[in-house]
Amino acid sequence: MALVAVGLVSGCDSERRPADAKPAASVSQTPPLTQDQLEAALPGPYEFPAGLEEDGFGGKHSWDGTDSTICRSENWPASWCARATALASSAASATSEGRQLSVRLLSFRSEKDAAKRFLGDTDPAEVGHNPPGDEILRIHAPDDDTHVYPGEGYDVRQGAIVGQVRYVYKDGDVPPGQTRAITKMVAKRIQQVQRGETPTASVR
Score class of each variant (00 low, 15 high):
residue 1 M to K: 09
residue 5 A to S: 11
residue 6 V to H: 01
residue 7 G to P: 00
residue 8 L to W: 04
residue 13 D to I: 02
residue 15 E to L: 07
residue 16 R to D: 12
residue 18 P to I: 07
residue 22 K to F: 10
residue 24 A to Q: 13
residue 24 A to E: 15
residue 25 A to N: 01
residue 30 T to P: 15
residue 32 P to L: 12
residue 32 P to A: 13
residue 33 L to A: 07
residue 33 L to M: 14
residue 35 Q to Y: 05
residue 36 D to L: 08
residue 36 D to N: 14
residue 38 L to Y: 09
residue 39 E to C: 06
residue 41 A to V: 11
residue 41 A to G: 10
residue 43 P to A: 12
residue 43 P to F: 11
residue 44 G to E: 14
residue 47 E to F: 03
residue 47 E to V: 10
residue 50 A to L: 14
residue 50 A to Q: 14
residue 50 A to P: 02
residue 52 L to T: 01
residue 53 E to V: 12
residue 54 E to Y: 07
residue 54 E to F: 09
residue 55 D to K: 03
residue 55 D to L: 04
residue 56 G to P: 03
residue 58 G to Q: 11
residue 62 S to E: 07
residue 64 D to Y: 00
residue 66 T to H: 08
residue 66 T to A: 10
residue 70 I to A: 08
residue 71 C to F: 05
residue 72 R to N: 11
residue 73 S to L: 12
residue 76 W to G: 01
residue 78 A to K: 03
residue 80 W to H: 13
residue 83 R to W: 04
residue 90 S to Y: 04
residue 90 S to I: 05
residue 91 A to V: 10
residue 92 A to G: 13
residue 96 S to V: 12
residue 97 E to D: 15
residue 99 R to C: 01
residue 99 R to N: 09
residue 101 L to Y: 01
residue 102 S to G: 15
residue 102 S to K: 04
residue 103 V to F: 07
residue 108 F to E: 09
residue 109 R to M: 07
residue 113 D to C: 03
residue 114 A to S: 11
residue 114 A to C: 05
residue 115 A to F: 00
residue 117 R to M: 14
residue 118 F to L: 03
residue 118 F to H: 02
residue 120 G to L: 03
residue 121 D to S: 14
residue 121 D to C: 11
residue 121 D to T: 12
residue 124 P to V: 11
residue 125 A to I: 09
residue 127 V to T: 15
residue 131 P to V: 13
residue 131 P to A: 10
residue 133 G to L: 11
residue 134 D to E: 06
residue 138 R to M: 11
residue 141 A to R: 12
residue 142 P to W: 00
residue 147 H to C: 12
residue 148 V to A: 12
residue 149 Y to Q: 06
residue 149 Y to M: 08
residue 153 G to Y: 06
residue 154 Y to Q: 04
residue 155 D to I: 00
residue 162 V to Q: 02
residue 164 Q to C: 01
residue 165 V to I: 15
residue 165 V to H: 08
residue 173 D to A: 10
residue 173 D to H: 12
residue 175 P to I: 09
residue 176 P to H: 06
residue 177 G to Y: 05
residue 180 R to T: 00
residue 181 A to V: 05
residue 184 K to V: 02
residue 185 M to V: 04
residue 185 M to L: 09
residue 186 V to L: 12
residue 187 A to D: 04
residue 187 A to V: 05
residue 189 R to Q: 07
residue 189 R to P: 03
residue 189 R to C: 08
residue 189 R to L: 07
residue 190 I to Y: 05
residue 192 Q to P: 02
residue 192 Q to V: 05
residue 196 G to N: 03
residue 197 E to T: 01
residue 197 E to F: 03
residue 199 P to S: 04
residue 201 A to L: 04
residue 201 A to H: 02
residue 201 A to C: 02
